[in-house]
């Protein structure tokens, strides 16, 4: 065996070697650059995904929600929930009341509404509809 450099050119060897070397270096350099920035990109997305503090619902602010003991002070709870259902009419779908209590992030809505039903604050009208006790 002897070296014949003419064979390299004849087989396009120089072009293959130089192009191959450049491609692999460029490829890994690009990958290296991307992974060096990856944590910054992820951090950027994470910042965007932080949900803004929910605006305090007008009903809660107006009625001092923070001060209400929802499970023990059912009078206060009833007043607050009546505000929530003000625009639903005299007879309303109980599911809508649940939705609004969830939307305004009131604590323990299911237990509270059940307690209001069991103690007669909410009166069933049939077909899942309820109305408030008159007094």
């Amino acid at each position: 065996m002897h070296l014949d450099f003419g064979l390299i050119a004849a087989n396009n060897g120089w072009a293959m070697a130089i192009a191959g070397a450049i491609i692999v270096i460029l490829g890994l350099t690009t990958l290296s650059f991307i992974i060096s920035q990856l944590h910054k990109i992820i951090a950027l997305f994470e910042q965007k995904q932080i949900t803004p503090e929910p605006a305090t619902p007008a009903c809660c602010t107006d009625h001092g929600e923070a001060d209400i003991d929802f499970l023990n002070d059912l009078d206060a709870s009833a007043r607050l929930y009546q505000v929530l259902s003000d625009d639903l009419g005299n007879s309303f779908d109980i599911a809508k009341l649940y939705q609004r209590s969830h939307r305004d992030q009131l604590p323990h809505p299911h237990i509270t509404i059940r307690a209001l039903r069991e103690t007669g604050y909410l009166i069933p009208q049939g077909d899942g509809r309820f109305s408030w006790k008159n007094d």
Partner: peptide, 20 residues
């Protein structure tokens, strides 16, 4: 990572040697 790329130069040098 760049060192992993640089070490691949042996491949291309040998390609030339084998052709020769």
């Amino acid at each position: 990572m760049l060192l992993g790329a640089a070490a691949q130069m042996g491949i291309y040098f040998t390609l030339l040697s084998a052709l020769a």
